[in-house]
Every structure is written in structure tokens, then in C-alpha cells.
Design a protein around this nucleic acid. Structure first.
Lengths: 125, 125
DNA sequence: CGTCTATGTTGACACATGTCGAATCGACGA
DNA sequence: TCGTCGATTCGACATGTGTCAACATAGACG
């Protein structure tokens, strides 16, 4: 696949942007097909037990940041952990940064807030 | 299927209870494997565009209740709509009730609130 | 430069999932 | 009772997904 990447004009596999300010609360208005498609990607990313646990490990870590070595003890092999972290990154929920030997993952606070707003009914209840 | 139900001791295929008061916010504490497994089911249920749209259609309907005939216009066949509604029901997000000819679906407000709390960071940000 | 440790990628496999057409069930009306 | 309409279930198929072993890459340290 590295060949294709070199030949093509570097088209990114997923649109990694514009996930934060998405939609009003679900109780307020039915989502359009486009809105649902974009939002469902985030929910789907959290729809796997391993990913949800990895995400909570990063989110609850000090400073909302965690090294892979700190969170790779979730019961699956390390390639699988890397695979899931990549999925979370593609969904816009995490960002990664390499500092020296280790790679650190951080949560995207705006995305968290947006998803929370989606599920927080504005109707008072 | 009516035969099997009559013969077997009525074992339910999915545990339909105890989904509402689950976990503290994700930013507060890493989820255990059990918590993640249970919570991921709800996120997974909303991780499909069609299901998310169906859910928003029901949630935003008057009284948080909608007939299937009102929400079955999401671009897929009616059996598929029924299939997705069943999934949402199994995840504890919806409840169904038959009134005469039509079947009405309603949202479970406590579940919505619980999921919103999960994503609402208590750290102030 | 060589080697070691830490992450990420590839290829392959088993399994789950979304989708539809056809058949079935349930309620209403002629 | 029979026919019709709304909703679910069944059977089948194509696709997506999670998982791992093996390999590749990136930086650190002698």
C-alpha cells in the first residue's frame, strides 16, 4: 500500500477534522443523514470494550495524557492496542505525539464535550 | 419461533436491565473490563448511522414517543428498520409498546442521562 | 555502527454486522 | 371468515471488524 500512497496526491484516508461542533441534543431535532454518519463514527469508536477502556485510561490519566506503555494492559496484544488507538485517532477522539522513545496520547476535550451535549437532553429532564 | 418460546423456560437473549446508573465520567476513573463491556454496548448501538438517526427521530418526537410508521423513512427497507429498532431495544435505549395496529417506541431518559454524564467531564473543562 | 526497546504496519483469519427479499404474525375492516 | 395493512422474523449474502503472529520502523544507548 505504500506504493499507492507514493503515487497518489496524498489523500488522507479519513477526514480527521470538524468533529467537535456537530449537532444539537438528540432530543431537540432529528439528525440528518450526514450528521448521523459523522456522529456515528465517534460512537462506533467508543462501541468496543477495549477502545472504551483505552479511552477512559487516557482521559483519566494526569493531564489527559498517557504513554502507550501505561495503558497497554487491557488484555489484548500490543498490535491490537495500537490498532485500536489508531481507530480512536481516526475518529478524532485522540491525538498522538511522539516525545523521544515513547508515544503519548491525549483526549480531545472539545469532542468529549460535544458528545456529552448530544446526550444531555435540553428539555430539562 | 413461537414454538421455541413455548418449549423453553423463557430465557431472555440479552440482559435488558441495569444499564442506567453505570459509571462515573470517563475523565475521572478508568473503566473496568466489566463496566467497559456494558457501556460499550450502548455506544455500539448508537454507532450506526441508521440507528443513530432512528434514535434521534424517536427522542425528538413529541413526548419522546414515535410510531414506527413515522420514522421508517431513513433510506433502508422496513425489515432493516425493524432490525435496528430491535438492536436499540436490546441495548436498553428504547422501549416498545403495541397499541392497536401500530407499535410505538420510546426513549429511556435515564439511559440518555447516564451516557451524557459519562462524557461530561467533571474536571471543569 | 550495532543492538536493544518501544510502536506501528501487514497479512490473514474467524466472527459479527448491515442489508434485503420472502415468509410470518397481529390487528383491523368488509 | 377472509382480505388487507403494518410490523417482525427468517434465510441468505456481502462486507466490516477484532484479533493475532510476523515483520518493519524509530529512537536510545553502548
Amino acid at each position: 500500500m505504500s506504493n499507492a500512497e507514493a503515487l497518489l496526491p496524498i489523500l488522507e484516508p479519513e477526514a480527521p477534522a470538524a468533529v467537535a461542533p456537530c449537532c444539537p441534543p438528540l432530543t431537540e431535532r432529528p439528525l440528518t443523514a450526514e450528521e448521523a454518519a459523522g456522529t456515528a463514527k465517534m460512537f462506533k469508536a467508543l462501541g468496543d470494550p477495549v477502545r472504551l477502556r483505552l479511552f477512559s485510561l487516557v482521559a483519566s490519566h494526569e493531564g489527559g495524557e498517557a504513554c502507550v506503555c501505561d495503558i497497554s494492559d487491557v488484555g489484548v496484544s500490543q498490535p491490537t492496542v495500537s490498532h485500536h488507538l489508531k481507530k480512536l485517532k481516526e475518529a478524532g477522539l485522540l491525538t498522538s505525539e511522539r516525545r523521544g522513545t515513547w508515544v503519548y496520547y491525549r483526549v480531545e476535550p472539545s469532542v468529549l464535550a460535544a458528545m456529552g451535549r448530544l446526550l444531555t437532553s435540553a428539555t430539562g429532564a
